Computed example of a mutant assay.
Amino acid sequence: MPSAPVVPRPAATVLLVRDHPRPRRGRSPLQVFLQRRVAGMPFAGGMTVFPGGGVDASDRPDPDRWAGPEPRWWAERFGVDTDLAGALVHAAVRETFEECGVLLAGPGTPAGLQRYRAEVVARRRTFAEVLAATGLVLRADLLHPWARWITPRDSPRRYDTAFFVALVPDGQEADAHTTEAVEALWWHPDEALERWEEDEMQLMAPTARTLQEIAGLGGSAAVLAAAAERTIRPITPTVRREGSRLVAVLPDETEVPAAGFRGRPA
């Protein structure tokens, strides 16, 4: 008798986007921040992903430290309950701060930002405590909903992940100062897809599909405009073998390589 599927853990991931001021000929200005995860990690080891991670117990937003659309609005967009929606937004902002140093909060940028970041990463202080200590509010208005992906049912480790889009705030820079990644760079979406097609980059199905969706949009303003028009429904791929290939099949029958499989189906 087959075992019951693992219950997916809530998670959040953020497509950080920007426009390169001097894109190379043939490239649109749009860039997205991608991290190559440490190979030995239990989930998505060696994969190139957007910043993000699981919701944790500290992701309980304070209404007094919140600016922008309220959790109820996010709940309607992602199809989840209000408490979870607030936690997803909080996790998205926290993980973005932890993993690449971009703070989606305001007003302004406090002194000693890296010290606060180190304390949050080390769990010496919660992100909510940092907001309170610095007088900042979480800027939910800087996030835009994009998609919701659920790991296939037969996976031993599963996540129900809300995908957000955010423009890097003026004056801030994303970095690679995280122990979870061996590399973190800005990529033109079509360039990352080319590397994937050439087997020089490993992408999970949600990452590959998302890059395909934004590759033709040209600039960050177009991505944010597209986010406002999207209808978000949970996407749970099924994984099947086609000859020697493992492919993730999406609800619209699109096929992309399953996580851990290098190369695209012909």
Rank of each mutant, 00 (worst) to 15 (best):
R60W: 00
R60T: 13
R60K: 11
D62G: 01
P63V: 09
P63E: 08
P63Q: 09
D64E: 13
R65L: 14
R65Y: 00
W66D: 10
W66G: 08
W66V: 11
A67Q: 14
P69S: 12
P69Q: 12
P69H: 12
E70F: 08
E70K: 14
P71W: 04
P71T: 06
R72E: 10
R72Q: 08
W73T: 03
A75F: 04
E76D: 13
R77S: 03
R77Q: 14
F78N: 00
G79R: 10
G79V: 07
G79C: 09
G79F: 13
G79Y: 12
G79D: 07
G79H: 12
V80G: 03
T82L: 08
D83M: 10
D83Y: 05
L84M: 06
A85F: 04
G86F: 14
G86N: 13
G86Y: 13
A87E: 06
L88F: 09
L88Q: 12
L88S: 12
A91E: 07
A92N: 06
A92T: 08
A92K: 08
V93I: 15
V93Y: 03
V93S: 08
R94A: 10
T96S: 15
T96G: 15
E98G: 01
E98P: 00
E99I: 11
E99D: 15
G101E: 03
G101V: 03
V102C: 10
V102R: 08
L103A: 09
L104D: 02
L104P: 04
A105S: 12
G106K: 08
P107Q: 10
G108T: 07
G108W: 05
T109R: 15
P110G: 09
P110V: 07
A111I: 05
A111G: 11
G112D: 11
L113S: 05
Q114R: 15
Q114H: 15
R117I: 05
E119D: 14
E119Y: 00
E119Q: 15
V120E: 03
V120W: 06
V120R: 00
V120T: 04
V121M: 10
A122P: 04
R123F: 09
R123C: 08
R125Q: 14
R125A: 07
T126A: 02
T126Y: 01
T126N: 00
A128R: 10
E129F: 02
E129L: 00
E129D: 14
V130K: 01
V130C: 04
V130A: 02
V130I: 05
L131P: 01
A132H: 09
T134E: 12
G135D: 05
